[in-house]
């Protein structure tokens, strides 16, 4: 019952954050502006055409990244293993950067080409990670994490090479995007993200019992009747789908996927039936709040939200790494 109340409080806080975020910023917004969206006032335009879609995008991206992190943490039984730390975001970023650099512009099934390119990059890295978990009985998670670091370095050097060879204008655009920003989003970003995050979230929601079993170990999970290889493939697919789409729109925003589910484990416990809604709400709320901070901290200048999450996430990563019982939570 304590956990149910915790979820209720999280839900209310998330709603509050989402509702408050569009009111905060250097352009003041009056209640009159809000009530007359097509009134033509600056406040109305800023509120309805800039800040509302931006807050929605931040919430969706935050939820999706946090859920992706939650799935990977359970899968690898380590709070440091997330799509970002294993190089999946880097893969998606490389795919999207390549698309931008090549000056491609197409859409397929209503999904923009940049998103497809990011999927492909994310899927490639996930495939590699999956192969590493299968090769010769699988590598230990620390090895995978180190491989993720190496892969991330490799991919960022590839992105740097792309950027170096690009024009000044393209190069600037790439850099801004790579820092992870929500600066240029409108309702089309919301509409791009919505189906991806909703699909990914529904798949994960249907797999909460499976995630619980995976987080106690693969042999034990299999002995309880879980089809481990099939479940892993489904999880990898759902996560690369979701993370790829988010990276294509917002750039690689790091550490949300690590912090949000870990904090939620402390709040709501490790049972994924509670952890799933907690992580969804907290992740969305967290990134929305980070984006507000990114907008107002050095106003009128705006820093990319990825810089804020990394500034919080870096120390958090170290804290998890150095904490004596991190391994005890998952092993």
């Amino acid at each position: 019952m304590k956990k149910k109340r915790m979820l209720l409080i999280l839900g209310l806080l998330a709603l509050l954050t989402l509702a408050a975020a569009p009111f905060i910023g250097i352009t003041p917004v009056s209640l009159d502006d809000v009530l007359h969206p097509s009134g033509g006032s600056t406040g109305a335009v800023v509120f309805w055409h800039i800040r509302v879609p931006r807050a929605l995008t931040a919430f969706l991206a935050g939820s999706g990244l946090a859920l992706g992190g939650m799935a990977f943490q359970a899968l690898f039984r380590n709070p440091l293993a997330t799509p970002f730390t294993l190089g999946v975001s880097g893969g998606a970023a490389f795919g999207a950067a390549l698309y931008m650099r090549l000056g491609l512009a197409f859409a397929l099934l209503g999904i923009p080409g940049g998103t497809w390119a990011a999927f492909a990059g994310a899927a490639l890295v996930i495939g590699l990670v999956y192969a590493l978990t299968r090769a010769r009985g699988g590598f230990a998670t620390p090895t995978l994490l180190l491989a993720g670091v190496a892969l991330s370095f490799f991919l960022s050097s590839m992105i740097l090479a792309l950027q170096y060879s690009a024009s000044l204008h393209d190069s600037f655009r790439l850099v801004r995007w790579l820092m992870g920003g929500l600066g240029m989003v409108g309702y089309d970003a919301v509409l791009n993200l919505l189906p991806l995050v909703v699909t990914g979230a529904i798949i994960l929601l249907m797999l909460t019992n499976e995630l619980n079993l995976l987080s106690v170990g693969e042999d034990l999970a299999a002995s309880r009747g879980l089809d481990v290889p099939r479940t892993k493939k489904l999880l990898f697919f759902a996560v690369s789908f979701m993370v790829g789409g988010i990276v294509a729109v917002c750039g690689p925003i790091g550490f949300v996927g690590m912090m949000a589910p870990h904090i939620c484990r402390l709040l709501a416990g490790s049972d994924h039936r509670n952890l799933f809604p907690a992580t969804l709400l907290f992740g969305g709320m967290f990134l929305t709040a980070c984006d507000v901070v990114a907008r107002v901290l050095f106003a009128p200048a705006e820093i990319p939200v990825g810089v804020i999450t990394a500034m919080i996430g870096g120390p958090f990563f170290l804290y998890l790494l150095l904490r004596r019982d991190t391994g005890r939570l998952f092993q």
Binding site: N212, V216, R265, G269, S270, R328
Partner: peptide, 10 residues
């Protein structure tokens, strides 16, 4: 040493 973050009941 397998220390899972679950209660006995769960």
């Amino acid at each position: 040493e397998g220390n899972m973050p679950f209660t006995v009941e769960e």
